[in-house]
Amino acid sequence: MTTTDTLSYQKKDFVTSQEVRWCPGCGDYAILTGVQQVFATLGVAKENFVFVSGIGCSSRFPYYVDTYGFHGIHGRAAAIATGVKCANPELDVWVATGDGDALSIGGNHMIHAARRNVDMTVLLFNNRIYGLTKGQYSPTSERSKKTISTPFGSLDTPFNPVNLMLGAGATFVARTVDTQLKHLKGVLEAAHAHRGFSLVEILQNCVIFNHGAFEHIAAKQIRDDRQVDLIPGKPMIFGKDLDKGLKLQPTSIEIVSPEEATVWNPAGATGANAYRMSMGDERGLLPVPIGILRSVARPVIDRDIHEQIAGARERLGDGSLTDMFQAGDTWKVG
């Protein structure tokens, strides 16, 4: 892979000729801008990026980023991306997916990509609704939600994506918000720097079918009190004037003064603290964690696959067709 500091790109180098077809006001536009800006700075040759997606509004993403792109079928983005990365670990693989694509029809592939620790960055656009199919509730929709497919209210209990991916063994899990560009870019850079499977949940507003779904977390006037940015090695502080802290107690999470706040460590052996934080309290008193919930090192399967092959070649020699045919008992006729 050509990863060099001498590569200088600008955002426009990652813009394609395709007309962007998201609804006006969709949160996806901001995410696209963030990705294009970040790609320009990563020092990766643009031909080495591969953007893979499934089906849904967010899965149109690859068409708008001027890299190699693959728009797959519903739910299979993580599996297709796994094939790309395991076949060629030199590539810089990204996935764009939504809450329906990743957690409903594609749930199986997501948990397995996480457990295998395939080195790729998954952007999970969570708008808590099915947009492209016009407004059915999704696996992250809150219980009792009234939608076109649940006129009397949904009876499903939602997934918390961060929490689910922690359970699946993801080695990097983060959360950010579509409207907070600076934060989003910082998280994308950290996710990219992580060696292994990185999951970034992006709270994303669907203006048509679920407008304001995250207002209670992301609205400008309240967000400083409703969010806490988890920064590795920094105390968990929040509030407009950074005047509040979070302290992890044995059986609870308490709001304390900034001086008493727990210093956030996303690399704990068990991930228990990340799990506790991820459970959240979005309608209660505690702020919702954004930032880096988990970041821990573990063997990366795509590299290991090729190391195993290299090891076998070293030990057994590079296999030839003659070796293959002559293995086992042979005999001669004539």
Binding site: R76, A79, I80, T82, G83, K85, C86, A87, H112
Partner: peptide, 21 residues
């Protein structure tokens, strides 16, 4: 490379990804 996938669909999907590369 032999990749024992999580299901049949992932089997072919990973293969399609590998073919793309």
């Amino acid at each position: 490379v032999t990749f024992q996938a999580e299901d049949e669909i992932a089997g072919i999907s990973t293969a399609i990804g590998a073919s793309f590369t």
